[in-house]
């Protein structure tokens, strides 16, 4: 579990017990409120790549605990435009606040920032690499809707090749007793390196190209967006997009379990039909809300207030 002064950079830094402790702290935040816990503390949100929802979720978490939020501003207006180095900016902002939430397009930016900021850094996304608070909120959602993480069969569908949220959640779930099922077209399949890591760790997984085939066996289905820029051929994009679209009819016809819960990091486009939204399967809006207690817990932990 992160201690006072620690940074939260990558889910790889967290073992199973530490993950469970963070989830337990998030549950306490949700139950008790804890307003005033971070009174007098300042969070700086430094988002050098736009992500309004993540930034607002951090701000909301801080304010709900009575803390204050400073925002670094848009990258276009900030000193970065003038060629200031990341290291200099982080060192200076670190002097104005007690904790930094950093989003940056360079991979490894948060790890570097944590070495020099002088205050804890929470990684709010470093390029295609990590987004640990997303992974914690995904795990928190799974635990909340299923009671526990162990013993579940978790499916992933969509862009599994480039999907950062998928890779991090897969890594986290490999610390639990879960069966993982990967559904994607060959061009967007899970990276070989990550599969090799799962094999080395003795993690049980399977791969498929057919969503309907695997749906009946799943407890959780984690959907991700398939982005057009990944395809050179727009016809191929349309074909793949159609083949991995989930709607109420597919859920019924494939024989998916009543207890199947569907997650999505949002925003979605076409991959999840709106007719699923008001079924008990849909937990993606709850998932987005869970970002607040999870970030409250992490802020409180690294500031030594838990």
């Amino acid at each position: 579990m992160p201690q006072a002064g620690d940074s939260v950079i990558s889910i790889r830094d967290f073992g199973r017990d530490e993950i469970l402790q963070v989830l337990a702290a998030a549950a306490r935040m949700e139950e008790c409120g804890h307003f005033g816990l971070l009174e007098g503390c300042v969070l700086a949100t430094v988002f050098l790549e736009p992500s309004t929802r993540t930034r607002l979720s951090f701000a909301s978490a801080m304010m709900k605990l009575g803390g204050q939020v400073l925002d670094f501003g848009e990258p276009e207006q900030s000193s970065f435009k003038k060629g200031e180095s990341l290291s200099d900016a982080v060192r200076i902002v670190g002097g104005y606040c007690d904790v930094i939430a950093l989003r940056h397009p360079w991979e490894g930016a948060a790890r570097l920032a944590a070495q020099i900021a002088g205050v804890p850094v929470i990684n709010a996304g470093d390029g295609a690499n990590q987004h640990p608070t997303q992974t914690f909120l995904d795990l928190y959602t799974i635990q909340k809707v299923k009671g526990q993480v162990d013993g579940l069969t978790v499916g992933f569908v969509g862009d599994l090749k480039y999907g950062r949220t998928v890779h991090s959640l897969v890594t986290a779930l490999s610390r639990f007793d879960c069966e993982q099922v990967f559904v994607a077209p060959p061009s967007l399949a899970m990276p070989e390196g990550l599969l090799a890591e799962l094999q080395q760790g003795g993690v049980s997984y399977s791969q498929s190209e057919e969503l309907a085939e695997v749906l009946p066996g799943l407890d959780i289905l984690y959907c991700t967006r398939i982005q057009q820029e990944r395809f050179a051929d727009s016809l191929e994009y349309e074909r793949v997009k159609g083949a991995y679209r989930l709607d109420r009819t597919l859920l019924r016809d494939s024989g998916a379990r009543e207890s199947l819960r569907i997650m999505h990091p949002l925003p979605r486009v076409d991959e999840l039909a709106p007719d699923i939204d008001d079924t008990p399967h849909a937990v993606y809006f709850e998932q987005a809300r869970n970002g607040v207690p999870v970030r409250q817990a992490l802020l409180a932990l690294v500031l030594g207030k838990v």
Binding site: L86, S87, P105, W106, E107, G108, A109, L112, D126, A128
Partner: peptide
């Protein structure tokens, strides 16, 4: 080898 790695963007 990652061109987007911070070690290839800044003197780290």
């Amino acid at each position: 080898i990652n061109p987007d790695c911070v070690t290839n963007k800044q003197d780290v």
